[in-house]
Design a protein around this nucleic acid. Structure first.
Lengths: 210, 210
DNA sequence: CCCATAATGTGAATAATATCACATTGTTAA
DNA sequence: TTAACAATGTGATATTATTCACATTATGGG
């Protein structure tokens, strides 16, 4: 099953299901049907079952899914039953905010290095204890600290060059906040986050009366 | 043409095209083919033409698209030839970072109000001159300052209640950073941004050898 | 033990989206 | 003026994703 090509959208949804299930677990719910879960996630129940079916059978017919089991299964599927080391590049408003934000650690994402070009910032210690390094040292330090994922929170103009450095440092996953399309070799997976695109999308809906 | 149902993905891409075209304009390029633009945006050339075809004919056969014209056309389509007022709710790390970030104003998105529940924060002045109001006043102030779009940058637990307030305040577009699915009436359009979902997606790709 | 019930898992049907391939049409130059 | 060219716009096709509908199978009660 793991060899079928899985839709990207499915992976995204699995992450959402997991988040919701974790909330349900805190509310001491131990079994849930696809119908109830679907409602809470804003999707179709069959969608959930199909998404899960790519990877196996996790439910009990006539009963539903055991919440804690399903969480673990999805973690297994997504590769979240371990920690991932993050390298943050660019400590402007956004980069700093993310490092201060506690939510990542909670989900097993750990910042093990941080970089900037600003001499004012290099050498400073961040709230989480990390010392900011100069981007010139990126390749070396990223290797040394075994970073798995690079986060680009630099201005657009620097993004491609940073991406190149990250790839040289052996990184195969990049979360890109810069509003440009970066080019990387096939071995590297890029996810883009662009707030203004989302705002544009809202603007469209507002102005076309939808 | 404006009455056909436009794919969501098309709207997203239009925003990306526009961003890329703006870069090209700065490089003094005045005409571009769908092929070159496609390469730069990482999509298929036919995709660009199809996306634009939903709204009209903007190119010149045998030549391509005039960069500055196309930017204006896309702005028109997306409703970006005007300003949009933003209400920021939640001035933690992320909310504060966004307000400090200059990129929004550049694209016509203007913060006209900011809210938090923390008495320590209420009354403080932000770098852009805005004074932080208490969330209790949200509905009233949002109406008064004609906010069009609400941004939820609160903890997950507060998100739904804030969304309700925003809707009461007459807001029809919400950008939600809280990692929960919020429920709103049909008249309100919600876009979600969740970094950890993106990270999960990268983790999946890294661990399943893709 | 067997039946009623409930909710999964899944093949088939549908819908949405992306790509191809080419006819169409401006442009340029001889 | 006209032919060669280049790149759009678009119908047809292929691909992908979602939803339906029901056969399947655990569970619990009579």
């Amino acid at each position: 099953m793991k060899f079928a090509k899985i839709p990207m959208a499915t992976i995204n949804r699995l992450s959402i299901y997991m988040r919701t299930l974790q909330d349900l677990l805190e509310e001491e719910m131990d079994v849930i049907s696809s119908e109830r879960l679907a409602k809470q996630c804003g999707v179709n129940p069959a969608q959930i079952r199909k998404d899960l079916a790519y990877f196996g059978e996790f439910g009990v017919r006539g009963v539903g899914y055991r919440v804690s089991d399903l969480i673990n299964q999805i973690k297994e599927i997504l590769g979240l039953n371990r920690n991932w080391n993050l390298a943050m590049v660019g400590l402007g408003n956004l980069g700093s905010a993310m490092i201060r934000h506690g939510n990542f650690i909670k989900h097993g994402y750990i910042f093990t290095s941080a970089f900037d070009v600003d001499p004012q910032k290099v050498g400073k210690r961040l709230p989480n204890g990390l010392i900011i390094n100069h981007v010139d040292e990126l390749e070396e330090i990223v290797k040394e600290r075994e970073a798995h994922i690079g986060i680009i929170a630099t201005p657009a103009s620097a993004a491609q060059s940073v991406a190149n450095q990250l790839v040289l440092g052996g990184i195969n996953g990049i979360l890109n906040f810069a509003p440009v399309q970066i080019q990387v070799p096939d071995c590297c997976h890029v996810e883009n986050v662009d707030f203004t695109i989302k705002l544009d999308c809202i603007a469209y809906h507002l102005s076309s009366g939808g």
